[in-house]
Simulated assay, not measured.
Amino acid sequence: MVAILKNDDHPEYGEVSIPLPIKASEYGHCMDLLSSLGIGDALNKDCQVEEFTRAYPTLRCLEGCKVNIDELDYLAKRLDGFDAVEVSQFQAMADKLKLTDMKDLINLTFSCQQATVIADFSDLESVGRAHYMNTHDGCASAEELDNLDGEETAILLIEDNEGTITRYGVVYDNGMQLSQLYDGKNLPCYHHENDCISVGLTSRLEPRDTKNITWVYAQHHMAKYGLSTTDHGYAARNGQEVIYEYSQPEHEPEMTM
């Protein structure tokens, strides 16, 4: 999708179109475009969303709102990794819960998989099997599925639970609790593009379970440019991906005794 962003305090600066999710190789260029409008801060919500193109309908709620570019990019990355079923679950639950806050939308991407959405009542066998998987963390043995009466499972779901009608189908939350993995400050580690390694950096003064983590990723695709992944990559500081680069000396100093 593409987000058309502007500086609401200075509309005379114009607009920029930012493709989402932002590729690591294009991150610096996109930040330069935003900087030219005086927006794109790592922490503040200073990007006014004028319009989305080719976006999921659920995200239209963000149009006319100020957002943080890194939160928006992170949400786009999460959704980019979803299959059609997960997109349906995300949109239906966002509609049911009336979510419009970026923090809640990001957290929903970590919990919407628990919900069951029925858009087609003509195949109850498939509905029942999908529901069983949703309520068992997406895992089931072949024996369990062989012994499962999918149609009966679907009928019990429909008769014993109150579904919510949304534009994406009838959704059953199955007792889903909205994840609180994202605290509104530190974006959770998420592998979107191929990378060889990710390293979480924290201060020695932080407790062991701290969420104040800087995630550093070494990019696998940089090898095609002749760059060593040990020497090049990017860091995500509280959600902001910052391109970094350093070089090893051509010759290590000789050690003498």
Results as ranks from 00 to 15, higher is better:
210 T>E: 07
75 L>D: 12
36 S>E: 10
140 A>K: 08
73 D>G: 12
157 L>K: 02
169 G>W: 00
140 A>P: 11
8 D>T: 04
242 V>N: 14
114 Q>D: 08
75 L>W: 09
252 E>G: 12
58 T>F: 03
86 E>C: 00
34 L>V: 07
146 D>L: 06
22 I>F: 08
177 Q>A: 11
183 D>N: 15
214 T>D: 07
6 K>D: 07
48 Q>Y: 15
94 A>Q: 06
63 E>Q: 13
12 E>W: 07
222 M>R: 06
24 A>V: 09
234 Y>F: 11
6 K>A: 11
234 Y>R: 12
201 L>T: 03
148 L>Q: 03
2 V>G: 05
209 D>V: 06
246 Y>E: 06
256 T>Y: 15
52 F>K: 05
238 N>V: 03
233 G>K: 04
208 R>E: 15
167 R>H: 11
242 V>C: 09
231 D>K: 00
87 V>E: 14
130 A>I: 07
1 M>V: 05
173 D>L: 01
140 A>C: 07
197 I>C: 09
15 E>A: 02
187 L>R: 05
99 L>D: 08
73 D>V: 07
242 V>D: 08
76 A>Y: 05
182 Y>R: 12
3 A>W: 05
24 A>S: 07
115 A>K: 01
226 G>D: 09
252 E>T: 13
255 M>D: 13
164 T>H: 04
59 L>W: 06
241 E>R: 15
232 H>K: 06
223 A>P: 08
87 V>G: 09
43 L>M: 12
147 N>S: 14
57 P>R: 01
19 P>H: 08
88 S>I: 04
124 L>V: 12
45 K>I: 05
166 T>W: 04
105 L>Q: 05
131 H>Q: 08
177 Q>I: 15
140 A>I: 07
135 T>K: 03
106 I>M: 13
211 K>G: 11
154 A>R: 01
